[in-house]
Design a protein around this nucleic acid. Structure first.
Lengths: 226, 226, 226, 226
DNA sequence: CATGAATGAGAGTTCATTCAT
DNA sequence: GATGAATGAACTCTCATTCAT
């Protein structure tokens, strides 16, 4: 359970991604396991901050180790590799947001309320998953080249389908304008939300839900006076 | 004329940024200058493509040299450093877009048309400056830490002022809704436009101006049916 | 305790010289420290030999690593840079000799005996600090250009003061000829001693103290028969 | 006559040192030859200044070319290599000083006056050959490793013989103290003179001959009051 | 004679990773 | 679990030198 590189993706079968050093015998009592897990999560959080601040490539494993007060080699007791750390960060984010998105859809609301719900979910993740989202924004171009992260592409495709279906349904029901390209519209909405992570400061003038409200206003009715 | 590190920033006084190796006597005839400049620009374009594709850090100078069919050391005949190449890319982009933005403002149109004009300028740069914009999107977090690129921050501030002033004027004239935060709105608009570079493919279904039209519709009137 | 770049200069306050990579948390037990220090000193000695033999610039870090039987990159586990190695070499030498000089002065002998004492101290360092002195003689011109080594200039000034004061006092007391320029005389003495490192071979006909005796004879009474 | 790498050593047969590119046909009218020679000498002087200031290794051919207002490649119209430039500098110095030393010996004076003459010759070269002497002092360790400069070692041996013979003769004639080692004494004298180049400033309080006088006083009679 | 572009070897340095203790 | 030493590959950059124009 606390093996290296653990990732539970609820969406895709965890097929075929490599799992280095997996075979070794590693059993432990329950108590220490929990402690180990805590330590591990702590390290992941430290790493996430650094990745967000300086970028994945620019962050060295020594940076992370320094922050944790250990030597860089010692990190390899907890993680297979630098990649597996960022993997853990992103997986955590994706698991949560996918579940939240599905919960919105499962409510079976009308398309307008569904869209509002999805937007609120996204903005709601801005604070708790700030680091993961920042990494996605800044380092996606680099990470996407690695087989290991192909699951992100799959999840992204699933999210796109959720949105496009909802937007199209909204058009059919006369809620949304007919002259919009659902795919294009989705992309704009998505990007606008996530990119906010670059300047959003928790504890600033507006909190995440205030931002969501502001954004929904513009998105639904535009900036013009009608 | 063909000195290393040449950059003409129309905005900021070019004060104090280092100009390596420039000191020596270097005067030249005339004809060769144009040829040298062509070669140089060719190399810059090659580098821009690679930076856009793989990221600034992940692109090695050998990658660039390989692409140009020369050895990595030979690049240093044309450029001081890897940084000075990306500098040239970004400066070219900023010089052009700043001039275009100012031209829009100088027309003295009403705020709505001005906003439309600014948006069209931005989308219009998506194709010719695709690489530069991609680098800005993906590597900004890394580049911003370097003194050398502080001019980008200055330019960015100037652009923000253009937008915020225009949006505020529009609100005063009753063109834009009063309940919008101009600064927040600007940021959303800005990010939404630039981030499009990630998926925009020249020669696709919509060209840049088609995108601009689509975007202006949503921005001005929202996705709702009124 | 075993941090990189450690240097204890007893003369100058260690103000403001950079201490790369030092920031991270780094605390240690005790026993290993001594071993680490031994390894480090061994490497410093190897490097010193090479610097003395081939010059600082002409000695590559790969040369040093080869001599130590490791890879060049591994040196950076122990030292920040090539410069920090030579720094360590020179600091060790300066700390020792400054202390020895001060000890001579603290005895409060008459100027003639003091001068003799200083000369003997200098010659006495020829063997144990042969490499450092050689580097000072051959590479000073290069090293003096670096901020990092400004402490050498300060120490040198302090030494000059010791000598000039002693020589002047000797003149006042009628021990040394009045028609000598103390500063000029000091420089001649100093250079004559240190430059001997170029041909002095430990285990040769004369040992360092034999040399000192020979030199003192010439210095005090000249080569003429009186 | 104006071929690359020209060196006329009056001492040693110019045996076997490589002469790159020597074969090529290169004839010229007398007038242009003189001009070329002037240009060449100018470049050598520029290079000598730089070598003296920064050291041979630390001076790049670009440094030299910059100083001359040309491109680095253009230097190779005048010289085979960086080494051949320093060779020219040192050869010029050695030719002159060897001739001057021999002239002193040829006067057949008594050993004391001969020693004084040799010392004055040496100090007299401090100003006109400051750069060459500086290079010898600072870069000798590096240059001595190259076959090309073996002639320096030969000349040095010849000079040593001149001195040692003179000092020994002086001892036999009862002019110099018996308890001195001639070889050791010679080395001290030699080093003390040349090393003065490090701090000797033309136009300072003492000119070269003033320095020589000061030095001869100390050397002959010591610093003690008798 | 000079230019300008390129070569090719090698420099110092970085860094993810391994592993015996 | 952690240390500390090391690996090995790669990186940016430098520089003497060559040569077609």
């Amino acid at each position: 359970m606390t093996r290296h590189n653990e990732r539970v993706t609820t969406t895709s079968a965890d097929s075929g991604r490599p799992r280095t050093r997996a075979g070794g015998a590693r059993r432990r009592g329950k108590g220490s396991s929990a402690l180990a897990s805590e330590r591990r999560e702590h390290l992941v959080r430290l790493a996430a901050e650094l990745f967000a601040e300086k970028g994945f490539q620019a962050t060295t494993v020594r940076n992370i180790a320094d922050e944790a007060g250990i030597l860089s080699g010692s990190l390899y007791h907890h993680f297979d590799s630098k990649e597996s750390i960022v993997d853990e960060i992103l997986t955590g984010f994706y698991n949560e947001i996918m579940a939240a998105y599905r919960a919105v859809l499962d409510k079976g609301m009308n398309p307008r309320d569904t869209v509002a719900g999805l937007v609120r979910v996204a903005f709601g993740n801005l604070e708790p998953h700030r680091a993961a989202i920042t990494v996605m924004q800044n380092d996606w171009n680099y990470l996407k080249g690695m087989d290991r992260f192909s699951y992100l592409i799959k999840s992204e495709a699933e999210v796109e389908k959720m949105w496009v279906d909802t937007l199209s349904a909204g058009q059919k029901q006369g809620l949304f304008r007919e002259d919009l390209d659902p795919k294009l519209t989705y992309r704009m909405i998505r990007d606008t939300i996530w990119v906010a992570v670059r300047w959003f400061k928790p504890g600033g003038r507006l909190d995440a839900q205030g931002l969501a409200d502001h954004y929904l206003k513009v998105m639904f009715d535009g900036i013009n006076v009608h």
